[in-house]
Deep mutational scan, measured.
Amino acid sequence: NITNLCPFDEVFNATRFASVYAWNRKRISNCVADYSVLYNLAPFFTFKCYGVSPTKLNDLCFTNVYADSFVIRGDEVRQIAPGQTGNIADYNYKLPDDFTGCVIAWNSNKLDSKVSGNYNYLYRLFRKSNLKPFERDISTEIYQAGNKPCNGVAGFNCYFPLRSYSFRPTYGVGHQPYRVVVLSFELLHAPATVCGPKKST
């Protein structure tokens, strides 16, 4: 009989979030998941669920729940959905087409922007091929755009693959930082360890 609440607040209220290319994953298990708490945590810009209804979450049980978190800019949030393409979905964080879970995003301009520009958040701009779903690539190998090998040196047709967002508070919403948490629900042929409040007794 599990009584402890799932530590969603640790994920959502973390002081620092990860850069999207090096997104963070927390496995959540053996706890009571009260998803209604999430609705009250922040004024969400996005709370979209796929393959599951957000209002039914509190009635369900899962084997595992994974919470992935990272920062992107406002106009990239739409890429965090099944079947999307674009720089983020292709080279940084890719959801599977049959994704079961929820994408939660909110504006973090007050936390993640600086007047002089916050350069701490990076994204991958160049990659030889698209990522597979939930693949994480943290390599910093020089990207070869031409025929000549780069031998690890940046220059003509040889690019450092990561680029930094420079978040400034005066930017338009599309270029402001957004914190994203992706909850993916895993149903294996194994005992369910993460249940809503109704199912945990």
Rank of each mutant, 00 (worst) to 15 (best):
F62Y: 12
C61A: 07
F45H: 15
R127G: 05
F70W: 01
R168T: 03
Y123T: 11
P7N: 15
K26A: 09
G155D: 06
T201D: 13
Y121P: 03
F185L: 09
V115C: 05
S200Y: 15
F160L: 11
I72V: 15
F12R: 05
D98W: 09
D68V: 04
S139C: 06
W106A: 04
S129N: 14
F47Q: 10
S29F: 10
N157W: 02
N118H: 05
C49T: 03
Q144R: 09
N109F: 03
V194P: 12
T15R: 12
N64L: 11
N107S: 05
S116R: 12
P82D: 01
L60H: 11
S116F: 07
P43M: 09
V20C: 03
R27S: 10
R179K: 03
A67H: 04
K132Y: 10
N64D: 11
N109R: 06
Y39R: 14
P197V: 15
Y143K: 02
V182M: 01
R136L: 07
V173T: 13
N64I: 15
V180G: 01
Y35D: 07
Q144K: 08
G146H: 05
S200D: 14
V52F: 13
A154H: 07
A105E: 01
C61G: 07
D98R: 09
I138G: 08
L111W: 11
G174Y: 06
P96D: 06
E76F: 03
H175C: 02
Q84H: 10
F160T: 12
R16P: 10
V173G: 07
V194C: 10
Y39M: 14
R16F: 12
K132P: 06
T170I: 01
G152Y: 07
W23R: 02
G196W: 10
G152I: 05
I142L: 10
G86N: 03
D137I: 04
D75F: 08
G101M: 02
P82L: 03
T55E: 15
A22M: 11
F45E: 15
V153M: 14
F8E: 04
H189Y: 11
V11Q: 05
V65G: 12
D75Y: 07
S139F: 05
E141I: 09
Q176G: 01
S113L: 01
P96G: 08
P43R: 12
